[in-house]
């Protein structure tokens, strides 16, 4: 399926250098991360070395190089969230999940990330659980959310 998906994506672009980042974004949407074989294909197609593609991709925070967990927890540590206690929410999530920011739990269930602003600063602190955004979080609420998620 991998080649097919990528080929379809390829048809949307002209194959110019400027298409590199959008193509990487689409490839990541497709597989959840930048698989080495996908990078190889993109490299052949755009005639840019794999080395250079990695150079570009590692520059940007969005790109991942490992398979993602089933759920993605993003703790906002933008300024508004920081001054309202985002750091402590991260401390708890780190402790409870047993992984640091940027890591995936051993059972592959959760990715934990710190992000710099989800744009809901007026309702800080904010945590995103997959696509759902929880606002006005607290150290107690995050514990409850983690409890709830563990059950299902």
């Amino acid at each position: 399926m991998s080649e097919d998906g990528l080929t379809t994506i390829g048809q949307e672009f002209k194959g110019e250098r400027g298409d590199l980042i959008p193509i990487l974004q689409r490839a990541q949407d497709l597989y959840g991360y930048l698989r080495p074989d996908a990078i190889r294909m993109i490299s052949r197609w755009l005639k840019i070395s794999e080395n250079e593609i990695f150079g570009v991709a590692t520059f940007f925070a969005q790109f991942r190089f490992h398979p993602p967990g089933q759920h993605h927890i993003k703790i906002c540590l933008g300024t508004a969230c920081h001054v309202k206690g985002g750091e402590q929410i991260l401390t708890i999530a780190t402790h409870r999940l047993g992984v640091g920011a940027g890591e995936t739990t051993a059972d592959g269930k959760y990715d934990l990330d710190r992000v710099a602003c989800l744009g809901c600063c007026a309702l800080a602190p904010v945590v995103a659980f997959d696509d759902k955004i929880y606002s006005q979080m607290s150290v107690l609420k995050i514990q409850r959310i983690l409890d709830g998620q563990k059950i299902d």
Binding site: G18, D19, I21, L24, Q25, F59, F60, A61, Q62
Partner: peptide, 18 residues
């Protein structure tokens, strides 16, 4: 793609250029 510096004009251009 998640880089603060890309708000800067010349960095933004570099990023659009791939």
């Amino acid at each position: 793609a998640g880089a603060f510096v890309c708000g800067e004009e010349t960095a933004l251009i570099a990023s659009i250029e791939g």
